[in-house]
Amino acid sequence: MSSHTLPAPGDTHGHDAHGHHDPNLQHHFVEMAQQFDTAKLGMWLFLATEILMFGGLFVGFGLQQAKFPEAFKAAHHHLDRNMGALNTVVLLISSFTMVLAVWAAQTGRRKVLITNLILTLACAGTFLVVKYFEYSHKIHDGLLPGKFFHYAQGQPNEYIFFSFYFMMTGLHGSHVVLGMGAITWLLIRAIKGDFGPGYYTPVDLVGLFWHLVDLIWIYLFPLLYLIG
C-alpha cells in the first residue's frame, strides 16, 4: 500500500497542519504550483464568462447596426473621438503599469509593486473622470434613453444606438470600478508585505482581470466611436 501512497504533506489533520508548510497553501492542494495553476485556470474560466457576457451585447449591437446603418452612423457623431482616444491611451498605460506590478511582485520588489499599483489606480481614475464628462455632455443633450431622451433631430432609430452605448460603456465602467476595488485590496496587502516570489497569485489574477477590462475597451472604442 505504502508504495502506492504519495507522501501527504501535513494534510492528515487539515487546517491544523498549516504550520508545516507555506501558510498560503490551502489544505486540499499538494503543492504551491498546483494551487497557482488551479487559481489561474479558474480566472481564465471567469474571463471566458465575461467575454460571453459582453459578447451578447456585441452581437445585439451588430444586428441592430445592420438593420439601421444610417441611424447608427448619424448617432455616433455625438460621441467625442478625442475623449474616446484619450481613454484608450489611458487604459493602455494602466495595462502596462499592471504588467510591471505583476513583475515586481514576482521578483519581490515591494516598492515598485506599490508604485505601479498606485499608477494603475490613477489611470483608472482618469478614465472614469473622462467618462464622467462624456456622460454628462450626452445627458445634457438629452441622449440618455428612456424618459430622459428628448433629442428630436436626426434619424428615428438613433435611440437604439444610445441604448447600446450606455449599456455597453456602463457595464464596462462598472468593471473598471470593480477592478479599482480589487487593485486597492492588492495595494493594502502589498503594503503589508504579503506578496513575494513565493506567493503572488492575487496580483497575477487581478492583472489578468484588468487586461480583460482593457481589452474590452479596445473593442468598444472602434465599435462605438469609429463607425464608417
Binding site: T49, E50, L52, M53, G56, G60, G146, I160, M167
Partner: peptide, 21 residues
C-alpha cells in the same frame, strides 16, 4: 449562463428605463 445574464440585465433595464432594445 453569461449570455442569459446579459439578456436578463437588458430585460430589467428595458422595464426600468425603456432602453428599447
Amino acid at each position: 449562463t453569461p449570455v442569459l445574464a446579459i439578456t436578463l440585465l437588458l430585460l430589467a433595464f428595458e422595464r426600468m428605463f425603456q432602453i428599447g432594445i
